[in-house]
Design a protein around this nucleic acid. Structure first.
Lengths: 205, 205
DNA sequence: AAATTAAATGAACAATGTTCATTTTTTATA
DNA sequence: TATAAAAAATGAACATTGTTCATTTAATTT
């Protein structure tokens, strides 16, 4: 192997190390509470080095947001082995919520923070591929449901968007602390209970 | 009138002036892009004065978030003149979305930003009264629907939460730029279309 | 071994939220 | 009205950010 190749690998390794440290700190203490200096400290490099490997903080956040989508992918892993589309859709929603609650900080980064989208705006194309791919899973499943005769008189794309919004909205309200102060009868299970109402509904469609 | 009374009024007036200036700048250039110095400049007072009237930035954001709920209230104004609860529920969702889109920055502050909730956490009670009251409108309406024989086998509170999540999720995805990169068939009407799917659904329940 | 290239550094800058000793203004008192 | 006391307003100063870039250190090539 050439030195050039080795160097390229080393560069990639340090890049990955920075992302790993960033993720660790984000999960541990939250994204707002993590500074570039913290990240540099964590891996015993200087602040300047971080900027050699990433244009700015948005670039780090965007890369981490992509990693988040990979992780969401692993929650979605086995979904398409479920052949019944309605069952798959129901399970997809549960997995989505599960991911959001178990990876709140990453979920926030993926679907709420402005940074990853600002990064996209300053890049060649402003396609949000990660989001588009994830949405296509929902849409594909809804389309299959329609083929099977469900959701009559509904349109696949807007209906899929509605479903996405429904689960996203629940996760969002929870993660951004909006369920806490409202004093639900069963605060601990409100997401579960709320999603259950949705399940009852699509059972009838 | 006593001087004390006049002074109290003057204090209240300056407090309101600060909030008004803050709101103006928030709407004009966004919340992250607005600094305490900007606000002070806008009303020709010094930075220090702002801190005489507000403990910190969170306190300003919290007060403004409360003002936002008053404004949402005016969108909800005539809803309870609609006696048919199902019609009212449908209209309530539309009004909610309308408010969110026409007041994106305020909506974000009310339902997404951490600041207002952090302010609550540092206060005596951490009840989120504004949110609770707004949710109660939805819940009351859903309960009336159930009394009228709709939504059989559903539970009012979780179902209301589901409905709230659905509209909130749509607004959230839109405001946080998550609908833009996905390339919907009709990007401009996806919220409208998505909500329409919801309307079709509750028509059947 | 010297020269060249690449990588890493950290001091320095501008912007921000926040504090607080000082100054200015207003009110009460004599 | 003149003076003392209280209230209000001030802005310089601090700590913490993200970010830059001239300089230093290390690695590679000649």
């Amino acid at each position: 192997m050439s030195t050039a190749e080795r160097k390229a690998r080393e560069k990639e390794a340090l890049r990955a190390l920075i992302l790993k440290a960033a993720k660790k700190l984000f999960v541990e203490r939250g994204i707002d509470q993590t500074t570039i200096r913290n990240i540099a400290d964590e891996i015993d490099y200087s602040v300047g080095t971080v900027y050699v490997y990433f244009k700015d903080k948005n670039a780090i956040l965007h890369d981490l947001h992509s990693i988040g989508f990979q992780e969401l992918g692993s929650y979605f892993q086995d979904l398409f082995s479920i052949k019944n589309p309605k069952e798959r859709l129901k399970k997809m929603g549960s997995s989505y919520i599960k991911f959001a609650l178990e990876n709140a900080e990453m979920y926030d980064l993926m679907f709420n923070l402005k940074a990853p989208m600002e990064f996209l705006e300053n890049s060649d194309t402003d396609n949000w591929d990660e989001g588009a791919v994830t949405f296509s899973y929902v849409k594909k499943t809804v389309e299959e449901c329609i083929v099977e005769g469900h959701f009559a008189e509904h349109n696949a794309e807007p209906l899929s968007f509605m479903v996405w919004s429904l689960v996203h909205g629940m996760c969002c309200l929870e993660i951004r602390q909006r369920t806490k102060g409202v004093k639900f009868t069963n605060p601990d299970t409100i997401l579960f209970d709320g999603y259950n109402e949705f399940l009852k509904i699509i059972e009838k469609l």
